[in-house]
């Protein structure tokens, strides 16, 4: 008699579970449409900057800094999208991951399946992280291409906000750093969204909670009398991506925001795990 015949099903390998989840997440039409839209953002900014540049000189603000300086585009696109669009995409993935399954009645099957609850959470979280990374990757890659091909700029150079020039290799390195940092911030949003997702059967509640939370954080961050709240608000460090365009590059802002994101990630993860371990099938 072998172990297979005892009637206890053998646990599926973890990598297979992970691959299945990622495939399932990435094959969803809404995910693909969303990624396509994210790829469109840098292209639209590039065309807008190009058209505006022909009419007048460089505009103000971060988008204005893109004019004639194409390699700024990916950083600008990621910074602009981090404000609302990227968290929205992550919230959507997190809403589908647990609340969506609960609404469709398929979560029961997953909870009854011979897969550890912790593994299930890790697999679901990985699916959300993959969506976040794919969206940021689309912004960064299309941003670099659109920046070089549509906006153009000093050949092989990036003019920093500090007025110095850096080479293409270093510029691409900085774009990569901002992309990784952005994924880190989105991981925090995703963890909190998953926590909400674990408590509801309605995916819309997750979207409403995340967007509402972002708006409330934005309002709280804009009130001068509540300055002391700034270190606690996840969104208050979200302009730090721009620091990658300064020379020498200050790392404090990026590091502070990452530390803050880790706290949110830990809180969200703890709540998800606790809830899923105790949840009835």
């Amino acid at each position: 008699m072998t172990a297979l015949d005892t009637g206890v099903p053998k646990a599926a390998p973890f990598t297979r579970l992970l691959a299945a989840e990622v495939r399932w997440v990435l094959r969803r039409p809404r995910t693909l449409v969303m990624l396509g839209l994210f790829a469109l953002i840098p292209v639209l900014i590039a065309i807008g900057v190009r058209v505006a540049d022909r009419q007048a000189g460089p505009g103000r603000g971060l988008i204005g800094a893109v004019a004639g300086n194409g390699l700024v585009l990916p950083v600008a696109a990621m910074t602009v999208a981090l404000g609302l669009l990227l968290p929205l995409a992550v919230a959507m993935a997190a809403a589908d991951a647990i609340a969506g399954e609960a609404a469709a009645g398929t979560l029961r099957g997953l909870l009854l399946a011979p897969v550890g609850r912790l593994r299930l959470v890790v697999v679901k979280a990985s699916g959300v992280l993959v969506v976040a990374a794919a969206a940021v990757l689309a912004l960064a890659v299309v941003g670099v291409l659109a920046g070089l091909l549509v906006v153009g700029g000093p050949p092989g150079q990036l003019v920093t906000l500090s007025g110095s020039t850096i080479g293409t290799t270093e510029a691409l390195g900085r774009v990569t750093l901002v992309a990784l940092w952005t994924v880190g911030q989105l991981a925090a949003v995703g963890a909190v969204a998953l926590a909400v997702s674990a408590f509801t059967e309605h995916p819309l509640v997750v979207l409403a909670a995340v967007l509402g939370g972002l708006i409330i954080f934005g309002v709280l961050g804009a009130i001068p009398a509540l300055d002391w709240l700034q270190p606690v608000l996840l969104t208050s460090g979200w302009t730090a991506g721009v620091d990658a365009l300064r020379d020498p590059m200050p790392l404090d802002g990026l590091a502070d925001a990452t530390l803050r994101a880790l706290w949110y990630l830990a809180a969200g993860a703890a709540v998800v795990v606790l809830r899923m371990l105790r949840r009835d099938a």
């Binding site: 926590a195 408590f199 270190p231 606690v232 530390l259 803050r260 706290w263 949110y264 830990a266 809180a267 703890a270 709540v271 606790l274 809830r275 105790r278 949840r279 009835d280």
Partner: peptide
């Protein structure tokens, strides 16, 4: 069970919030 999870979640969030405040100030 859900109530207990919510309580655990709230406690965790408060602990993390305090940690954030203490670590920065």
């Amino acid at each position: 069970n859900r109530g207990r999870s919510v309580a655990a979640g709230v406690v965790t969030t408060i602990a993390v919030g305090l940690g954030l405040l203490v670590s920065t100030g």
